[in-house]
Design a protein around this nucleic acid. Structure first.
Lengths: 200, 200
DNA sequence: GCCTAGAAGCAACAAATTCGCGTTAAGGTG
DNA sequence: CACCTTAACGCGAATTTGTTGCTTCTAGGC
């Protein structure tokens, strides 16, 4: 389906892939994402359109590819000494990047040209890896930690849902609030199950 | 941008809109969503292609339109006598509909051809309305209720996030779990703080 | 240094999209 | 109720985009 599975790792194929990706990035900056066309990208990349059609199928899958590439976090989450601080910082940065206009565009593109959900899965995996890294450090420090699934449901999901479905704005305070609630749930769980629980 | 904002409410425009929507629904069933083309829809609807291009811009925006129409809930949430029961039932049905293959397809389409987020906003509004209806009934019964924002963050968002980004399955137990946790948070809040009760 | 096969180029073709312009018919007005 | 105004539709030509069969190239294996 996605005609891109195994690009020959080296050689001409790799050069073409890189050249096409670069062309997309340049042209998005120059003429805007909406004015892009496959022939335009092909010309800039110095390849024939049929090459792009054969390898990516259509413009959307190509853009999806490029978008996922850009959504890949390039740095590990900062280590600020405590779970809470790490999560706050990570969530704020995550929200910032994802809710920014280019971030939103990348998310949309990634979902768009993705018939089988591969690219979407990759995006959620990136977030999960970052969270796992933070949790692993906390475990190493001896702190109690929540399930990473809980953090995905309570922090990542609401942010993404609002970005995709709701018009309103998102600020760092919201990210911290989500983290607070998630961690608060942890404290409850840790202290006692029944109705009454200690306040922080 | 979306050339559909003010359709002349009655008369020819309305007939064309209905005819085109119907053509899309029929053809999706007959040839499949991926084989659809604008000229094909136009022929079936008895309209010229340029009409569709002028009014919807492209196939994606048209599909987005049709998808939102289909995502509109057609019935009020059931009244089972308690907040908890109503929420459980609603969440299960919501998950069922959204996570089903056609549901996933509609969600994707709705997001896809939606440059300004109007249609996405409509989707989230549908869910919010349903939840508000459930909450309003609970308030009327004198039950303590959570903010509807909390339910959106804790129940709707995780479901939608998983549908869009994660490969795994979703079952009714997951929906109930989300509701449980959201309502559990309410109990904590209610016991730790004084207020927030009925005021219809 | 050959083979082999996947990938890219080329070119002709088919299909989709855009556009100018004349026509139709909602909805408002006197 | 006849008349106007104008958004929306139809038509067809012009342009652009997407597809396909075949050839040529080259990476990777022997």
């Amino acid at each position: 389906m996605s005609p891109k599975p195994m690009v020959r790792p080296g050689g001409r194929s790799a050069r073409v892939q890189e050249s096409v990706h670069a062309a997309v990035r340049e042209l998005v900056g120059e003429v805007g994402r909406d004015a892009l066309t496959v022939p335009m990208v092909a010309t800039r990349a110095g390849v024939t359109p049929s090459t792009i059609y054969r390898r990516w199928g259509d413009l959307q899958e190509l853009l999806s590819d490029v978008a996922v590439e850009r959504l890949r976090p390039e740095t590990d989450p900062a280590d600020l000494g405590s779970l809470r601080a790490d999560l706050d910082a990570w969530a704020e940065q995550f929200l910032d990047e994802m809710a920014s206009p280019p971030g939103r565009a990348y998310i949309r593109d990634a979902l768009l040209g993705d018939p089988d959900g591969t690219n979407a899965g990759r995006c959620s995996a990136y977030a999960a890896e970052q969270i796992d890294a933070v949790l692993a450090r906390a475990v190493h420090r001896g702190e109690p930690v929540p399930e990473s699934e809980l953090l995905i449901d309570r922090v990542v999901a609401p942010i993404m849902y609002r970005i995709l479905f709701r018009p309103g704005r998102l600020d760092a305070a919201y990210a911290r609030e989500l983290v607070t609630n998630a961690v608060y749930a942890l404290q409850i769980e840790a202290s006692a199950r029944p109705t009454r629980a200690a306040a922080p």
